[in-house]
């Protein structure tokens, strides 16, 4: 028995996730704490793990990682999510992922996997590629988060973004609610299927609700130039203001990419409040004033029902 435990611990030095798998420690949930320790049996409230990455390997697919108290829960690398998981901090204190290089969280999950993230502060600290980089999943839900200060050099599209949505194929849904995305060197929310390889065939739908996307270079960008699938986003009570470029930008390419603005706000942007190079719809209830230029082109009226 002691030998078996020793073997498991030894495996940990190679890979934390492999460690948990080897120990066959899989539970529906695991707790993390600033006072926790990454060890094969961690995850209870009395013996929490220390990092999200380690806890991810302890929890069954579809389970949850719960935050017990305030701490930085980053591991060395981006947190890479390849199956359904929830990470939930509901008023336990400031729970951060600081990613001075690379991404904060990479979502590369399966076609039926739901990923849920609540109550995190994801900080590029003046470096870092993207706060949350979504490549694949059935859905990604982001609630009550702050994503700030991603500023990796390059700014070539995949760097300096708050939330980057870049599926290549399949169907993906994203929900962002009650969240702030601020001070990123490139784009606050960047939805761009086929960023890596053109010829994407992804179907993407999303909602942004009560989200502030401020003080980035660009606020909310939908760019579908490399995707022949479908892309629809409804932005409700989204404040895309004070960006050094545009508040909202849509380039539909040859696809049907559509952004609907619903009770949204754009002011103080240094280029356009709304730059419309595609299908940008308004329910005619938005406040878009006092940008360097408010609109690049007329918006298409859509009917509320």
């Amino acid at each position: 028995m002691r030998n078996a435990i020793f073997a498991v611990v030894a495996a940990c030095t190679l890979s934390n996730i492999a460690c948990a798998d080897a120990a066959n420690i899989v539970s529906p949930s695991a707790w993390v704490s600033g006072l926790g320790k990454d060890a094969p049996a961690c995850g209870s409230t009395t013996a929490p793990c220390r990092t999200f990455e380690y806890a991810y390997g302890v929890v069954v697919p579809g389970g949850s990682i719960f935050v017990k108290d305030a701490a930085d829960y980053s591991a060395q690398a981006p947190l890479v999510i390849t199956h359904a998981i929830s990470i939930i901090n509901k008023s336990s204190g400031t729970a951060t992922i600081v990613a001075h290089s690379g991404d904060g969280i990479d979502v590369e999950a399966g076609a039926s996997d739901n990923v849920y993230i609540e109550g995190l502060t994801i900080d590029g600290a003046g470096g870092g590629d993207a706060g949350i980089n979504i490549v694949s999943a059935a859905s990604v839900t982001i609630e009550h988060c702050l994503i700030k200060s991603f500023d990796a050099p390059g700014n070539n599209g995949g760097q300096g973004d708050g939330i980057l949505v870049e599926p290549q194929s399949g169907t993906l849904a994203f929900t962002v609610t009650d969240t702030v995305i601020s001070g990123n060197a490139y784009i606050g929310v960047f939805v761009v299927p086929g960023l890596v390889n053109s010829g994407a065939t992804a179907t993407v739908s999303g909602t942004l609700t009560r989200v502030a996307v401020v003080s980035n270079q660009q606020g909310v960008v939908l760019n579908d130039f490399a995707n022949s699938g479908a892309l629809t986003v409804i932005a409700t009570e989204v404040d895309a203001s004070g960006n050094s470029g545009d508040g909202f930008y849509v380039n539909s390419g040859s696809s049907s990419a559509s952004l609907y603005l619903n009770r949204a706000t754009a002011t103080g942007n240094l280029k356009y409040g709304v730059e419309n190079l595609g299908k940008l719809y308004t329910y005619k209830d938005n406040s878009i004033n006092n940008n360097v230029k408010d609109l690049s082109a007329p918006l298409t009226a859509a009917a509320l029902q």
């Binding site: 179907t203 409804i234 409700t236 559509s258 609907y260 509320l304 029902q305």
Partner: peptide, 20 residues
């Protein structure tokens, strides 16, 4: 409906069935 809902982009193209 109070006529103030945003219902667009549902996947079959059928945002509403049965009317409001």
């Amino acid at each position: 409906t109070y006529g103030d809902n945003a219902i667009n982009g549902n996947r079959t193209g059928n945002d509403v069935i049965g009317g409001l």
